[in-house]
């Protein structure tokens, strides 16, 4: 990620020109102090807009209780712990674009994704109903033993294979897949994210590492 270049302009610049600069990734300062002489087209020397869609979790510390569930859940090292023992988002660019799953495991609805579609994860005020609904989702994931990613991956592999058709009669399997389907929908995990997950063994390994990190943080900084 490179720094945003700033263009300085006199008031009265057209909205079209401003919009074109912003779309190209420039920041614009409209000020009387700008030189009155016309500047050459800055976009000629400019960077192209960021390729990265800025998608990452943001913590509302007024709600967060530092329980570390997000840290144990995330397989991609997005979360970490500050020197003072506080949960932090440390590796924003590791986050999987359009996946809000960790916000769904937070029991306090303290994780926002400002570019998400739905309330309250997008940053709208949290209502009592939201708290009840989110708590229900946490319960479902707890029922599934916390090993959500590997089960979901397993499910998507099975759904794709002929094996699942041959065993169509297997009611237990069907029910389990059904339940996982619902969970994927409830957590709004994009299909592409599931398809891009590593092997089940690798997921289990990563989940253990993440969980150990969270446990270590809780041990060092008991609340």
């Amino acid at each position: 990620m490179s720094a945003v270049l700033q263009v300085v302009m006199q008031p009265g610049a057209s909205a079209q020109a401003l919009s074109a600069l912003l779309e190209k990734g420039y920041s614009v300062r409209v000020t009387q102090d700008a030189p009155r002489t016309a500047v050459s087209d800055p976009t000629e020397v400019a960077p192209s807009p960021s390729k990265w869609k800025p998608w990452f979790p943001v913590i509302d510390y007024q709600r967060c209780t530092n329980c570390m569930q997000c840290l144990s859940f995330c397989l991609f090292d997005v979360y970490g712990v500050s020197k003072e023992g506080k949960i932090q988002v440390q590796n924003q660019t590791n986050c999987k674009t359009d996946c809000p799953a960790c916000s769904r495991v937070c029991p306090e609805v303290a994780i926002l994704f400002p570019k998400y579609r739905h309330n309250p994860i997008n940053g709208s005020e949290v209502q009592a109903d939201d708290l009840r609904r989110e708590a229900m989702k946490v319960d479902i994931s707890a029922l599934l033993g916390g090993d959500i990613y590997s089960m979901l991956r397993d499910r998507s592999a099975k759904a794709k294979s002929r094996f699942s058709k041959e065993r169509d009669e297997d009611r237990a399997l069907k029910e389990r897949l059904n339940c996982l389907n619902k969970l994927q929908q409830a957590m709004d995990i994009p299909g592409e994210v599931l398809a891009a997950l590593p092997s089940v063994d690798e997921i289990r390994r990563k989940a253990e590492v993440a969980k150990a990190k969270a446990e270590e943080a809780k041990r060092q900084f008991p609340s």
Binding site: V4, P11, A15, S19, L22, S27, R29, V30, P54
Partner: peptide
């Protein structure tokens, strides 16, 4: 954006605050 430009006021416009936050701009 057009309203701000037409009002002739001083202001700052940024492409994306989320991206700036991730970079701790």
């Amino acid at each position: 954006l057009a309203g701000l430009a037409d009002a002739g006021v001083e202001f700052e416009a940024v492409p994306d605050l989320c991206e700036m936050s991730a970079r701790r701009d």
